[in-house]
C-alpha cells in the first residue's frame, strides 16, 4: 500500500504529452536507483560465506539483481552481508567496517549465526546475533541458507528499499539517530559493549571475592 502511494505522484499527465513524458516521484527514482545496485561488502565469516559465493556463481548469479559487485572496501559498499558466526574477537572489526560504510547502508544477517548466534550461541566467544550491535534490515534463517534462500532474502531487502522514503530514512535526519554510528566495543576481560559501561561497573562492584 505504502509502496503504491510513494510511486504515484498524484499528478496527471496531459493527454498529448503521455508518450513523451514520464513522471515519477523522487522517492521512487531514488529507491529504484538504490535497489538495483546494492553492492555488498565482500565479507565472509564462516560457512554461510561459501553459500554466498555459490550465490554469486553461474547457477544462481546474483548479478541479475545488481548485487555482483563485491567490494572489498567498506567505502564502496551499500550492504553488509553478515554471513556467518560473529565472534567476540571479530566484532570490533565488523563494527569498524560498518562505521566506515557510507550511507545509505543496509545490514543483512545471513543464517542462524548472524541472526542470533545460532547453534553456537552458548559459546564463550560468540556474539548472540549481530543485531545486538548493528541495525539489521533482513534476517535470513537457515544454516546455511541455500543460495536461493539468500536471493529470496535479497528480494526482501529490495522490497524494503522500495518502501522507504527520502524524508524518513534515518541517515538524512539532522538529529543524531541510533544506528548510524555504533561505538566500538572493547576486547577486555570479555567483550565490553561500551554502551553498557554502567552495568559492568555495577556488576564488578557487587562481585563477591572476585
Amino acid at each position: 500500500m505504502e509502496n503504491e502511494k510513494l510511486s504515484l505522484p498524484n499528478y496527471n499527465i496531459p493527454e498529448d504529452l503521455e508518450n513523451a513524458v514520464v513522471i515519477t516521484t523522487l522517492d521512487r527514482l531514488y529507491n529504484w536507483g538504490r535497489r538495483s545496485s546494492v553492492w555488498p561488502l565482500m565479507f565472509g565469516l564462516a560457512c554461510c560465506a561459501i553459500e554466498m559465493i555459490a550465490a554469486q556463481t553461474a547457477r544462481y548469479d546474483m548479478a541479475r539483481f545488481g548485487m555482483e559487485v563485491m567490494r572489498p572496501t567498506p567505502r564502496q559498499a551499500d550492504m553488509m552481508l553478515v554471513s556467518g558466526t560473529v565472534t567476540k574477537k571479530m566484532l570490533p572489526a565488523i563494527i569498524r567496517l560498518y562505521n566506515q560504510m557510507p550511507e545509505p547502508k543496509y545490514v543483512v544477517a545471513m543464517g542462524a549465526c548472524a541472526s542470533s548466534g545460532g547453534p553456537f550461541k552458548e559459546g564463550y566467544n560468540v556474539v548472540a546475533g549481530i543485531d545486538k550491535f548493528l541495525p539489521v534490515d533482513v534476517y535470513i534463517p537457515g544454516c546455511p541458507p541455500t543460495p536461493q534462500a539468500l536471493i529470496a532474502g535479497m528480494i526482501k531487502l529490495q522490497e524494503k528499499i522500495d518502501r522507504q522514503s527520502i524524508k524518513t530514512v534515518r541517515w538524512y535526519n539532522k538529529e543524531k539517530v541510533d544506528g548510524n554510528y555504533v561505538p566500538m566495543p572493547i576486547l577486555g576481560p570479555d567483550l565490553i559493549d561500551v554502551r553498557r559501561n554502567a552495568e559492568y561497573k555495577a556488576a564488578a562492584a557487587t562481585k563477591e571475592g572476585a
Binding site: S115, S116, G129, D131, D137, V138, Y139, I140, P141, G142, P145, T146, Q148, A149, A152, G153, K156, K160
Partner: peptide, 10 residues
C-alpha cells in the same frame, strides 16, 4: 520452503 526471510527475529 526456504523463502522465509523476514524483517525481524523468527
Amino acid at each position: 520452503d526456504f523463502e522465509i526471510a523476514s524483517y525481524g527475529r523468527s
